[in-house]
Amino acid sequence: MNDFQAIADRVEITALQAEFTDAVMMRDRARLAALFTPDGVLRMPDVPVELTGPEQIRVGGEKLQEQWDFFIQNTHPGAIRIDGDTATGRAHMHEIARLKNGFQGLNYAVYHDRYRRTADGWRFTERVYETRYLDRSPLTGAAPGPAGPAGPTDSTGSTGSAPGSTRPAAYTDPMHTDPTYTDPAPADRLERAAAALTANGFTVELLDDAAAARTRVAELIPAGATVFTGAGETLRLSGIEEDVNGGDRYRAVKPRALAMDRATEADDIRRTVATPDVALGSVAAVTETGALVVASATGSQLPGYAGGAGRAIWVVGAQKVVPDLPAALRRLEHHVLPLESARARAAYGRPSAVNQLLVLNAPARLTPGTVLLLRKAIGF
């Protein structure tokens, strides 16, 4: 390979890295996906995400993009080593982000790349994202321009926030950096919580991750059952919410309730939401003493959990395990509520609130309760 070809290859690979960042900033996921070979892989272990092939990269990227309030990415090219029709290299990243779940801050990261020469030019065969520095301090800036209109109100009351609710300023901060609220509990604490829940009458299954929970939920709920899904990031991020409300396997309660008139069919909405075959959701915290803590702005999911449903199922991330009830309430006030308020502001233009609080020290007598306790973190 002559010197001119080597220079041309380096210029094209650097342009490939820049095209990736431009596609990210322009939110053009189809263009971004086309920068990968058919077997190309995008890995982000810290998210965690692993996507293989252009179609997965496009779809997975769009799902990640839906979580952004705003995202700014800058790329600084690193070393590139060419070996015939393949190459390796690095790109150094400086990013500023605010997500709809309240996460915000800036980070420095490195993409470790592998490239392959194709008929269409150089393409990524692998990008592995490694975070080197993360600062989760609240961001003070914002994109210029007026705020968008408030989103629609959920007629079930399950995701909306309480109008007129007030909180001290401290509760509007969407960030809490205490790792005890975000890191997965170790195995011994998970097992202790599982044992206590079991002793209190819950059925408990320890599962590896959200994918396992998604599979297990499909096994636990029979086709044709009426299912009400409580609002929350756990069901959304795991895909369980879409499985229930976006398909025809179940008689999904939430879409039906949303289509009903709140003024003329309020009683029907109340009865429909309160007495499904299955009430499915998550919790704000689970204690090592065997209690579940559920908070709500409007209370729509609470009747089903407390005895109205034929069965209740909760999918719980490992970061939600706390020692006792006081710790659970602290987690709720200082971590869950700020994040949920940030999400509600982005979606509805107003904060959330803890207007109802349910503590389940045992399942309701006529509503068997199953806790799918994960070994990994998910949700708030």
Results as ranks from 00 to 15, higher is better:
residue 2 N to Q: 08
residue 5 Q to C: 06
residue 6 A to C: 04
residue 6 A to V: 03
residue 8 A to D: 14
residue 13 I to Y: 03
residue 14 T to R: 14
residue 14 T to A: 12
residue 16 L to K: 07
residue 20 F to I: 01
residue 21 T to P: 02
residue 22 D to N: 11
residue 23 A to N: 11
residue 25 M to W: 05
residue 28 D to H: 08
residue 30 A to H: 11
residue 36 F to M: 07
residue 41 V to G: 09
residue 41 V to P: 04
residue 44 M to N: 08
residue 44 M to I: 14
residue 45 P to I: 13
residue 50 E to K: 13
residue 50 E to Q: 15
residue 52 T to N: 08
residue 54 P to F: 03
residue 55 E to S: 09
residue 58 R to T: 00
residue 60 G to R: 09
residue 61 G to Q: 00
residue 65 Q to K: 09
residue 67 Q to M: 14
residue 68 W to K: 11
residue 69 D to C: 13
residue 71 F to H: 15
residue 72 I to L: 13
residue 87 A to L: 05
residue 87 A to I: 05
residue 88 T to A: 05
residue 90 R to T: 14
residue 92 H to N: 13
residue 97 A to Y: 13
residue 101 N to M: 13
residue 103 F to R: 07
residue 104 Q to H: 12
residue 107 N to L: 15
residue 118 T to W: 11
residue 125 T to F: 01
residue 128 V to M: 11
residue 130 E to D: 15
residue 132 R to M: 14
residue 133 Y to S: 13
residue 133 Y to Q: 14
residue 134 L to H: 09
residue 134 L to M: 14
residue 139 L to D: 02
residue 140 T to E: 15
residue 142 A to V: 01
residue 143 A to L: 15
residue 144 P to D: 06
residue 146 P to V: 03
residue 147 A to F: 14
residue 149 P to H: 06
residue 151 G to Q: 12
residue 152 P to Q: 10
residue 154 D to W: 10
residue 155 S to H: 15
residue 161 S to L: 10
residue 162 A to I: 04
residue 164 G to F: 06
residue 166 T to K: 06
residue 167 R to F: 05
residue 167 R to E: 05
residue 168 P to A: 14
residue 171 Y to T: 08
residue 173 D to S: 13
residue 173 D to N: 14
residue 178 D to M: 08
residue 186 P to R: 05
residue 187 A to E: 14
residue 187 A to T: 12
residue 188 D to T: 04
residue 188 D to S: 07
residue 189 R to S: 03
residue 192 R to W: 02
residue 192 R to F: 02
residue 196 A to P: 02
residue 197 L to A: 01
residue 198 T to D: 10
residue 198 T to L: 05
residue 198 T to V: 08
residue 202 F to Q: 03
residue 208 D to G: 10
residue 211 A to P: 07
residue 213 A to S: 10
residue 213 A to M: 08
residue 214 R to A: 13
residue 217 V to R: 08
residue 221 I to Q: 02
residue 222 P to S: 08
residue 225 A to Y: 01
residue 227 V to P: 03
residue 232 G to R: 01
residue 238 S to P: 00
residue 239 G to E: 09
residue 239 G to P: 04
residue 245 N to F: 04
residue 245 N to T: 06
residue 245 N to G: 04
residue 248 D to C: 03
residue 253 V to M: 06
residue 259 A to T: 10
residue 260 M to K: 01
residue 263 A to E: 10
residue 264 T to V: 00
residue 267 D to A: 12
residue 278 V to C: 05
residue 278 V to Q: 04
residue 280 L to V: 06
residue 281 G to L: 05
residue 282 S to P: 01
residue 285 A to V: 09
residue 287 T to A: 05
residue 288 E to N: 01
residue 290 G to S: 04
residue 290 G to V: 01
residue 303 P to M: 00
residue 307 G to I: 06
residue 310 G to S: 09
residue 323 P to R: 11
residue 325 L to V: 14
residue 329 L to D: 04
residue 330 R to A: 15
residue 332 L to W: 02
residue 334 H to I: 02
residue 335 H to N: 05
residue 337 L to A: 07
residue 339 L to S: 00
residue 340 E to C: 00
residue 340 E to N: 09
residue 343 R to A: 12
residue 349 G to T: 10
residue 351 P to H: 06
residue 351 P to Y: 01
residue 351 P to Q: 04
residue 352 S to R: 08
residue 356 Q to I: 04
residue 357 L to H: 07
residue 361 N to C: 01
residue 365 R to E: 14
residue 368 P to G: 09
residue 371 V to P: 05
residue 372 L to K: 09
residue 372 L to G: 08
residue 375 R to P: 06
